[in-house]
Amino acid sequence: MPVSAHAEPEARYRIPLSRDRVLRAAVRLADEHGVEALTMRRLAEDLGAEAMSLYHHVANKGDVLDGILDLVATEIHETVEALDTPAAGAAWKQAVRRRILTAREVLLRHPWAPALFQTRSAAGPAVIRYYDGLLGLMRQGGFSYDLGHHALHALGSRALGFAQELFDPAAGGGSGAEVPPEMAEQLPHLTGMIAEIAHDDPDSTLGWCDDQAEFEFGLDLILDGLDRLRGSR
Rank of each mutant, 00 (worst) to 15 (best):
R28T: 15
D220F: 01
A163Y: 08
Q94F: 00
A103F: 05
A115I: 10
A25C: 15
V35H: 10
R42L: 03
T74R: 03
T85L: 05
R104N: 10
H150V: 11
Q94G: 00
L83A: 05
D132I: 09
G156A: 07
I128V: 10
A5N: 06
I194L: 15
R24D: 08
G172W: 11
Q186A: 13
V64S: 12
V72T: 14
L29H: 05
P169T: 14
R28V: 09
Q118I: 05
A163S: 13
R28S: 15
L69K: 11
M183W: 03
R12I: 12
E81S: 14
G231S: 02
V64I: 15
D210F: 09
L219C: 02
I15Q: 10
E78M: 01
G156E: 06
D227W: 05
Y55C: 00
G141M: 03
H153E: 05
V22P: 08
T191A: 02
G161A: 11
A103Y: 04
L71C: 10
H56D: 09
A151D: 10
L152C: 00
V64R: 10
M52K: 05
F217Y: 04
L65N: 12
M138A: 12
A30L: 14
A195Y: 01
S175K: 13
L101K: 07
I222N: 09
D201A: 13
T191K: 06
E81R: 15
P202C: 14
L160H: 06
P180F: 06
P202F: 12
L135N: 04
P180L: 10
V58C: 08
I15M: 03
L147T: 03
I15W: 02
L65T: 12
W112F: 15
H199V: 13
V3R: 09
R97S: 07
P9E: 04
H57G: 03
E105N: 14
I15G: 01
D84G: 03
G173V: 13
E216W: 00
A87C: 06
R228Y: 01
A115C: 02
W208C: 09
R98V: 11
L226Y: 02
R28P: 01
M40S: 13
P188M: 11
G48M: 05
H77S: 00
P86N: 14
S53F: 04
P181Q: 07
L54N: 01
P181N: 03
E50A: 01
T191C: 00
P188K: 09
M40R: 10
L147H: 01
L206T: 15
L116H: 10
Y145Q: 02
V3N: 07
